[in-house]
Design a binder for these strands. Structure first.
Length: 440
RNA sequence: GGCCCUAUCGUCUAACGGCUAGGACGGAUCCUUCUCAAGGAUUAAAUCGGGGUUCGAUUCCCCGUAGGGUCACCA
């Protein structure tokens, strides 16, 4: 693309609450589109509503974007443009394209205020939307809509148009809830002599209940996913695939691959649901790519304090296979899932026999297992060796009859990794001791 | 209600107007060392309804129906 018609996109959230995945999908698409075309991605905080805008929400947005890896090329605050807005507002009034109207305030105070209304030329406005096709609306029923609470307090539809124009925005990619604002904005563009950018209105992201995502219904802020121990790559990949697909069967995309594959024309025109189970799957896929050092960097905050490092590394693969996100580690430990790696289990004798078997033979089998294991040299105490000395006996005696009590004797639990796994991890000495203790 | 948008498995989706409507997540079944997890194999599951256009409609048109968006001195 020629430098003079360089692509400029913008993500323009208002910091009046924490944003959910639907908003971040908009940010992702804006970012992807800009990068794909070698353009600029602008972040504009729309904070003209002074009462409702909060710095903490703005910070949350900034943090979330950074976490996802969506770096912006420029950051603006709409509130810093009030002078410029007033200037344009005054010009419009001077040109007769807008007028000041003295009306009773809507706040019920009974006072009168001077608000700015746009002089609606009452035209049929139609615009081409990259996703929806051509949308046509009769602006007559909009009336002379208000563009300023006063000459110094511009309203959204006006401020957006001026800012997009000043910032050279070429592509407005935003949520479908803005479709009905577009004709108003086009009218204002014509009035101030701005060109109309390319529009792409994204269908909404819904919850699994097909309802709009909302915090009330449990929609999480991006930082909440982060704090739950999800990987940013997973969220980026997952959210980018809501309502968009590359047309191939590839599902796992790095950020660079997303940039390369992204295409506005392949964005779905119907709303999509956010499926948390699919997010878990994406997250597992990205966790698999983590090496041990990276894994523990993420995992450590969720492990019990004072966790033995050597032991932790020995059970790393067991943990990996059992979690969808890092906070699951805490859940696992709290459920006592790995207690038997750190302390002697309390074995319930009633649990010892395999189904249909009795305590007596279970203990006899444990004795045989113990005898065989005693002969296995300390230096050869590996998963495979342990299995090889027990396997033949278990086959002959009945796998369940041998393996079940063996595992229960080591773990004290009805569910756990297999006995060879536990034995190899806790070592010969403890294995023999537990075997002896279980039959005592 | 006015205006606007949308409609393929439960979910995300694929299918120049033309092969048994494909894939993924989730589910089920089986296998893989006893349980759990992971892994492997197999499998169930969809074109909202009715009219057209056409030799032929998931696909194009119309009407229904159902969802959603928006109708502020919020953004």
């Amino acid at each position: 693309m020629h430098s003079t018609d360089r692509v400029v996109t913008r993500f323009a959230p208002s910091p009046t609450g924490n944003l959910h995945s639907g908003s971040y999908r908009t940010a992702i698409f804006c970012y992807l589109f800009a990068r794909k075309h070698g353009g600029k991605f602008i972040l504009r905080i729309e904070d003209t509503d002074r009462e409702r805008s909060k710095k903490e929400y703005e910070n949350n947005i900034l943090e979330s974007l950074a976490w996802l890896g969506l770096e912006h090329d420029a950051l603006y605050h709409q509130s810093e443009h009030v002078e410029r807005h007033r200037e344009v507002l005054e010009r419009l009034v001077a040109e007769g394209k807008a007028y000041i109207s003295t009306e009773e305030a809507k706040d019920g105070s009974g006072e009168t205020k001077e608000i700015v209304r746009f002089k609606n030329p009452n035209e049929i406005v139609s615009f081409k939307d990259e996703i929806k096709g051509t949308v046509t609306m009769d602006t007559t029923d909009l009336g002379d809509f208000v563009i300023g609470k006063s000459i110094t307090e511009p309203l959204y539809n006006f401020a957006v148009v001026v800012d997009d124009f000043d910032e050279g925005v070429t592509h407005v990619i935003r949520g479908e809830d803005h479709v009905s604002n577009t004709p108003r904005q086009i009218l204002i563009q014509r009035a101030i002599g701005a060109s109309t950018p390319v529009y792409a209105h994204l269908p909404l992201v819904l919850g699994m209940d097909k309802q709009k995502l909302s915090k009330r219904k449990g929609a999480l802020a991006m930082t909440e996913y982060r704090d739950l121990g999800y990987l940013p790559e997973a969220l980026l990949n997952m959210v980018a695939m809501i309502g968009w697909n590359p047309g191939t069967e590839q599902e796992l995309f790095s950020k660079d691959e997303l940039i390369a594959a992204f295409d506005l024309n392949k964005v779905q025109s119907s709303p999509a649901s956010f499926n948390p189970e699919k997010l878990d799957w994406f997250n597992r896929e990205y966790m698999k790519k983590l090496d041990s050092a990276m894994f523990w960097q993420h995992a450590t905050p969720w492990t019990p304090k004072g966790l033995d490092h050597a032991m932790a590394h020995k059970i790393e693969h067991l943990i990996r296979d059992r979690i969808n996100k890092f906070s699951d580690i805490k859940t696992l430990f709290e459920a006592g899932e790995f207690d038997y790696f750190f302390a002697e289990p309390i074995v319930d004798h009633a649990m010892l026999p395999w189904k249909g078997d009795n305590l007596e033979t279970a203990c006899a089998n444990l004795g045989e297992v113990r005898t065989r294991l005693e002969q296995l040299p300390q230096t050869d105490w590996t998963y495979d060796s342990i299995k090889s000395v027990i396997w033949e006996y278990a086959e002959a005696t009945g796998r369940g009859n041998v393996l079940w009590p063996f595992r229960v004797a080591l773990s004290g639990r009805d569910k756990s990794p297999d006995p060879f796994e536990i034995a190899s991890i806790i070592g010969k000495e403890k294995t023999l001791a537990r075997l002896a203790a279980a039959v005592a």
